[in-house]
Design a protein around this nucleic acid. Structure first.
Length: 403
RNA sequence: GGGAGGAUUCCCGAGUGGCUAAAGGGGGCAGACUGUAAAUCUGUUAGCUACGCUUUCGGUGGUUCGAAUCCACCUCCUCCCA
């Protein structure tokens, strides 16, 4: 899947690399944040994150490849969308094929043939998503494997060991993604345990020279707890900080309120990563509140399930009304899919269960989000992020209607 | 020519007197999906002047308070033997 615009993106990325190498700031730590500018209108940040596997501009969206693959897309295709970093997962790769296999393969980059940056989640999200199969203790989390039912103990130390073996550029502290809703007492216990686990992660992390450990802020939907967690987590000098436990069922308004309690307390010279957020409206609102990095399964998942993102909002392209719609998914999109295929064809493929249809929808959705982020960065550059937000929402609306 | 078994709502296929507008699957339609147990899941799928009524289980006619279910004849289909 080739097209001209994508090649331009690649060029931009190379330019970014040059900037980094010639920057007198060149630091010894493996991953660092280079601020470029702050939007005068919104306070949104433009920057570059430097990693051992290349740099990427922020605000950035990271496609998710849980099992060492962004479902349906080849690494070459992911690059075409403009992605400079992708996500993978500790728990899943530990269960299968086993982190030793990936280590012996030469690390995750080599194993999956992805030479740009990789961030691995620690398994903290599986504490949330596999809640029926696990038991939390101070020591760690006992999991019953979702594959074969075998029992495993994931601890902060183990999460570091596995991620060290994987060799990802950014590794995440082992946390508990606190479920929503959570009562305040539980949310407090949970966030404090996540802080204690972070201390253990820092002690256990052996490859600080090539891998950056990010801490994760929790605190559920309680402003005081978010502040407490932010203070605790940022008291450790780390190359970056994430905000977790959001976008887990609470309203968009509540999520944004929590961000407003959190980001002002985070250091300005480190990247800020909002975990698990990926609809365009959430991305834009996160950027305005000072977020630099996002990841989400949304574009690939909804794509596989027949929904695509467009400049006029999402459409369920699987629906009957598109059976004879020979237009591209989005007539304003320059991606390979929109240049070559129609809604009617993609609908047909998805209805017929053809894997190519899933691929096309996934490719477009990832490209679409990458393109939104590119426009976001441009808006910051021009100090018009709030204007951009208004223009975008007027045209595309909300991904999900606000509650 | 002889024998046997069938025909059920869009399709396949349960159901063998009332609890049946009729299981289940498929297909159709619609929705959900946000650090991936997801190419998954959920709802819906006779009609209507709808909290009730009407039509429906090959056709016609019977038995019965009541039939997709029992009986008779008819039509068509499949299989086996000649």
């Amino acid at each position: 899947m080739k097209n001209e615009e994508i090649i331009e993106n690649a060029d931009n990325n190379e330019n970014a690399v040059k900037t980094a190498n010639t920057n007198e700031n060149s630091k010894k730590i493996s991953v660092w944040y280079e601020p470029i500018k702050t939007c005068k209108q919104s306070g949104a940040r433009l920057g570059i994150v430097h990693t051992p596997h290349g740099n990427f501009e922020t605000p950035a969206f990271m496609p998710v490849g849980t099992q060492a693959t962004v479902k349906g897309l080849s690494p070459e295709e992911i690059k075409e969308t403009g992605a400079g970093i992708i996500l993978s997962n500790t728990y899943h790769l530990w269960m299968r094929p086993g982190s030793d296999i990936i280590k012996d393969a030469g690390g995750l980059h080599k194993f999956m043939n992805w030479d740009r940056a990789i961030l691995t989640d620690s398994g903290g999200f599986q504490v949330f998503s596999l809640s029926d199969l696990r038991n939390i203790t101070e020591e760690g989390v006992k999991f019953k494997s979702h594959i074969d039912g075998s029992k495993h103990l994931l601890t902060p130390e183990k999460a570091m060991e596995v991620q060290n073996d994987l060799g990802s550029d950014i590794i995440m502290a082992f946390d508990e993604c606190t479920p929503y809703p959570a009562d305040e007492a539980y949310a407090k216990r949970s966030l404090e345990r996540t802080t204690r686990w972070l201390e253990r992660c820092i002690k256990a992390h052996k490859r600080t020279d090539v891998q950056a450990l990010f801490g994760i802020i929790q605190g559920s939907t309680y402003a005081d707890l978010r502040k407490q967690s932010t203070r605790e987590i940022t008291s450790f000098d780390l190359p970056g900080y994430a905000i977790g436990g959001l976008s887990v069922g609470e309203s968009a308004q509540l999520m944004n309120e929590m961000l407003e309690e959190t980001t002002p307390l985070m250091p300005a010279d480190k990247p800020r990563y909002l975990m698990g957020v990926g609809s365009p409206d959430y991305l834009i609102d996160g950027v305005i509140r000072g977020i630099d990095m996002f990841d989400c399964v949304l574009p690939t998942r909804i794509g596989r399930n027949g929904t695509v993102l467009t400049s006029r909002g999402k459409i369920i392209v699987r629906d009957a009304k598109y059976a004879r719609d020979y237009n591209p998914i989005d007539d304003e999109c320059n991606c390979y899919v929109c240049k070559n295929y129609s809604r009617a064809y993609i609908r047909h493929l998805i209805k017929a269960g053809e894997m190519f249809g899933l691929r096309l929808a996934s490719y477009h959705n990832v490209y679409y989000l990458m393109h939104v982020m590119e426009k976001v960065r441009e808006a910051i550059r021009q100090d018009r992020m709030l204007d951009f937000r208004q223009e975008y929402f007027e045209k595309a609306g909300y991904f999900k209607k606000p509650l």
